[in-house]
Nucleic acid binder design. Sequence first.
RNA 1: GCCCGUGUAGCUCAGUGGUAGAGCAGCUGUUUCGUAAACAGCAGGCCGAGGGUUCGAAUCCCCCCGCGGGCUCCA
Length: 601
Amino acid sequence: MLSARPRWRPMRSTYMVTTGHDIPFAALPADERLFRQRHSAAHVLAEAVLEMFPEAKYAIGPPIEHGFYYDFDLPRSLTPDDLGVLEARMRESVTRDLEIRGEQIPKDEARRLFANQPYKLELIDDIEDATVGHFTHGNYQDLCRGGHTETTGQIGAFKLTHVAGAYWRGDEKRPMLQRIYGALYPTQEELDAYLLSVEEAEKRDHRRLGRELDLFHIDPLAPGAPFYHPNGAQLYNGLLDYMRGLYVEYGYTEVITPQIFNVDIFKTSGHYDHFGDDMFMFQADEVEMGVKPMNCPGHCQLFRQGLHSYRDLPLRLAEFTRLHRNERSGTLHGLTRVRSFSQDDSHIYCTPEQTNSEIQRGFLMTRRIYDDFGLGTPIIRLATRPEQFVGSIEDWTNAERMLGDAIHHAGYEYTLAPGEGAFYAPKVEFHFRDAIGRSWQLGTVQVDMAMAHRFELRYIGEDGGEHVPTMLHRAILGSLERFLGVYIEHTGGRFPLWLAPVQATVIPIADRHNAYAQKVQARLQKRGLRVRVDTSNERMNAKIRSAQLQRVPYMLVVGDREAEAGAAAVRTRNGEDLGALSLADIAKRLVTERDKRVLTP
RNA sequence: GCCCGUGUAGCUCAGUGGUAGAGCAGCUGUUUCGUAAACAGCAGGCCGAGGGUUCGAAUCCCCCCGCGGGCUCCA
């Protein structure tokens, strides 16, 4: 249920791409102009690279979100210095303002023109039309579908950002090429704003905040498996407490199943065949054992115990125990891509008649959770039957329709993700857009027609006969690790009070106020609030700064006046000064804010 | 896993063949202060691990390990 980080998405042209310039560049809509600028910039980059390495082989170079890239097969590795040289060369082409011309040519002619370019030849072979697009500017030529600016002078403001490896056609069995990425916007101001936003994003990187706020670390001795420090464990347990509260309300029941199984169970579930490469497996007493990568097999095995009446359904089993997947080392990334994690996982066993309302319930719960965390409206995708699937097409179509209807019934729109379902079930994916505009997948709901059959699950129906239950898989936060990582970045570490590891810091002005500060702390701790006292030998200003940097929601400053009055001067981390309030009022304010799960002080 | 980059004090980083450095954090002392950084002193390192070249290696080479950027986009 984990999904990768958002990638550099390709841009799509909304226009019929043409080799000519029927519509003047300036008359095109803004998004089409940007598409063409980025596309042409890729050509200008390739021109510069071919000039630097006449023997270079060039592959593909599309426009993407924020810019463009181009892939090359080069005689040596590129260095960051090369980027500066290439960029300067590109600017020459811009200054020369060369006309970009395109035409359709027969494939044979294209094969002749690109005789020394194996990647282009392969592309030509794969094109079904009789002719292919051929674009030129100056001495540069490229095989290209089109969608370009009229001249190289129109490509806008750009900057080459980095070099990365990329397999030819994304296939790890094929050659590794060098990909050069560039950022491009119509104006220098927009480019600068984008580059600045990248810097801003780095400041809220959860790996950085994880260290600064002392939340967690990932040790070289356990790659991909977080150590939660006290502050991080507080957050993690805060999520569990929250979900357990909802489970009471929504009729779930929590179970705990083993971490390690005889692999027979994964052969039954299909994970051994479909997921085995991602699992940790080992021998114990000559038996092959596997560490669970998901909870579904265990829950099915649990369901097999005893007989179930239709009266017991729906049975909503929830579990938070840890899961392990042997992700490839190169894909690990902070908390968002890990090998050891847990989910707010649940499997719901119900009758076919109950399926729709159970899906609805999942939507309601999702909505509630998104509201409580301030995640906005869920963005929904429906992922349908992949090429490799189990079960009947009829079941699949049914399940897909059921999910689509449920989404509409819940009042949401969705986009289709054809072929992206799991091998056993179509899935609804819940995404959210964070504070700086990035989209992340969190939870999913899946209607599974296969697993119950594989485990031969049965319940006794009203008719006295045996029936196979429908099985729903659902997680809303998804992986707790991933959720924490995303939420840290979304909030920039400014957690709502109910989640904040430290909810208030008491700041004595001079050390003669320490004793009173501790009284304030004790008073609030009695109300279940997490309060610290800063007794360090620092000036008040330094203590405030320190609490601010830790994103503590409330600072309670106490000096002579407050000690005298039985009060504290309240400052929020937003910099608001609420003046002196009585301890009773402060306790009331914080407890209310906690219980109502207010997002910000 | 693969390509490229990178690893020096808890953190951020200087140091490119000749005696390991700075700021912040830490510790100790002085100061007792009214809403985002008081002052002084002290301590802190197998320069990621292993091997090699060299009179001499943080620095050059090899090999591991970790970390970072990428690797489903189809001209």
